[in-house]
Amino acid sequence: MTEPRADAPPRIEANGLTKRFSGVTVVDNVSFLVEPGQILGLIGPNGAGKTTLFNLMSGVLKPDAGRLVVNGVEASGLPPHRLARLGLVRTFQLARELDKLTVLENVLLAARTNAGESLTGALFRPAAVRLDERAATERAREMLALVSLSDHESKPAANLSGGQKKLLEMARCLMAEADTILLDEIAAGVAPHLVDEIALLIQRLNREHGKTFVVIEHNIGFIRALASRVVVMAAGRVLAEGSFAHVSANPAVVESYLGQAA
């Protein structure tokens, strides 16, 4: 249980984030806060800059302007592995499972501390390596159980279905012990019964484990059920922000996005 403290800094504090690709401003001066324990929905039409914003937040892309603060630490322009160590991990719009590794190995990879992952550890500390790896394996199995993939642990990840691959990415994020998880269209292309399962899982992780989520999703029902706050983006800017009821009553949002989605 990682109950957020009352005085905990925001999980994510984005201030004026901007990204241009050869003259086109894809993310334009975007600011928002993600408080601990929140599930923030990020919606908007295709090309609104949602995934680019995720890439900026996870260090995959560097912002051209603006500041990013993660858990109170200045994180602008940090590489992905540093952001992950600050407690921020993500999934990908198209699941990026490691095909040739087994499902279990995919999850084990995310272990936060493992003596066997350093060169000196692997060569000179066999006892610590065994101990860490044993603990990591047991934890990885718990994560796989959470996402109902236990029966598949010894399969190569390439053999999972599309929805299972997304669940595998979720298990990896949990294994990484991150307190904030960015989900990029986790429900897209997933069988309907699995979508419900994923929604329940997010809710459970949020309530029981205090995990904070930022969720990009086109499935409006999914966002309505989950998100405590919604940020609507269009053409790289924040169009509206607030509760689902609040933003869905906003005429600009209806016109640019919800109208066409409905």
Partner: peptide, 15 residues
Amino acid sequence: RAIREDELVPATLGK
């Protein structure tokens, strides 16, 4: 091996 398969994955997991 993870780096060989897809370097972005181990990077976003803190490696």
